[in-house]
Structures are given as C-alpha cells and as structure tokens.
Amino acid sequence: MNTIAIIDYGMSNLSSVVKAVKYVAPNDNVIVTANSDEINDADKIIFPGQGAAKKCMQSIYDQNLDQAIKKSSKEKPFLGICMGMQVLMDYSDENKGTNCLGIIQGKVKKFKKNINTRIKIPHMGWNKIIIKKDHPVWHKIENESYFYFVHSYFTNPVEKSSVIGETNYGHIFSSVIAKDNIVAIQGHPEKSSSIGLQFLKNFIRN
C-alpha cells in the first residue's frame, strides 16, 4: 500500500481531486496534508491548485511548504495539476508578475484575446490533448483525447523536449510536461471522466 499525499496549501477546492484519487486508488492510503513531514514520508505526491499565482505562492510560503515541495518533486513521483503545474515554473505573468518555485524552467503567460478567433478567457471546457511523446501516463489513452480545462494562463517551458502533450486554444500551448519524476498537467484529470481517471491511475500505478 502506497501513501499518496495530496498537498493542501489552502488555495483550492481539493474535494474533486481527493474523490477521484480515492476512486482510482481504493487500496492506497490517500492523505490530504499541509505537513512537510507527511509530504516527505509519502510515496507519491499530488499537487493541485486553483486561483491566482501570487496568492498560491504566498500560501505555499506561509505554510513553509516550499522546501517540502521542491524536495519531493526531486525524489518521488510528483503530479502537478492546473495551478499546481504553473507554480512549478520560474515565473508567472499573473498578478503583475509572480516568482514561482523554479522547479521547471520556463514562464507562465496569459492567453491573448485574438480578434480573428475571439477566444474567451478563461479557457473553460473540453479540449484535446495532442500526445507529443510516449510516457507511462498515456497508457490506454488515445492521442487527441478530451480533457476538461479551466485556466487563463499557460506554461511555456524552456526545455521543449519535456512537453509530452499539447493543446490548441487560439494557439498551441504545452498542456502536459514530464521531467524526471515530475508530471504536470494543465487540465483537470479529476474532472475528465473516464479518460481523466485513467490518467490518474497511470500516474499512481506507474
């Protein structure tokens, strides 16, 4: 039995993530925690998040979680979801500029309104993920499967070879990154029906 720690830094409604992880890992020990020791002791880490970058970073620092997040992202399977993906980067343009954790090199940018396509912001709804690279998280998931997204900013990693999934919203952006033991996804697997559950299962079983 593995212990899967879902990091709770007070910035999001974790209930959906917790329910989905428990559903796909009924025999594992799923904990929700803001405690560095528990994060260090866990076998796998899930790092969700919603809201604005600055507040997210602030609550990570307020709860002294930055070191535990950095350490665990180097040492064990680590899954960032949505804002949990974005704050892994160096820097976000959100809130007039926010320094992030710097675990993955690159920046977070805002979708631009485009007169021709008139995209709405946030990018909210179901969109395809184009698989760019083989990875265990894609087990039993077809190319161009639909995932549920809700976000206004997107990541732009320096190392293009770490991009394992892309999505098109006005332009192509990196929607899934894998680097060493870290996987980060912009969409919400916990809300993406059976395909999203498969993605979570792949991360947990891997």
């Binding site: 409604n13 209930s15 959906s16 329910k19 989905a20 428990k22 559903y23 549920y148 916990e190 809300k191 993406s192 029906s193 059976s194 999203g196 559950l197």
Partner: peptide, 29 residues
C-alpha cells in the same frame, strides 16, 4: 461527486460565501 467525474454545478438558494464553500467542499465545481 464521489462517483461521477465531470464538472458539477449546483444552484438554488445560495446566498453566502459560507454556502459556496460548503458546496465546493462537498464536491461541487
């Protein structure tokens, strides 16, 4: 929300942030 994994919206009689938080904590998106 424990068994159906697509976005769930809930309406009706919500009048405070307390109501909203309670629903989100229960699994509403």
């Amino acid at each position: 929300a424990s068994q159906v994994f697509i976005p769930l919206t809930v309406g009706g009689g919500i009048s405070s942030i307390k109501d909203i938080r309670a629903l989100l904590n229960s699994g509403a998106d």
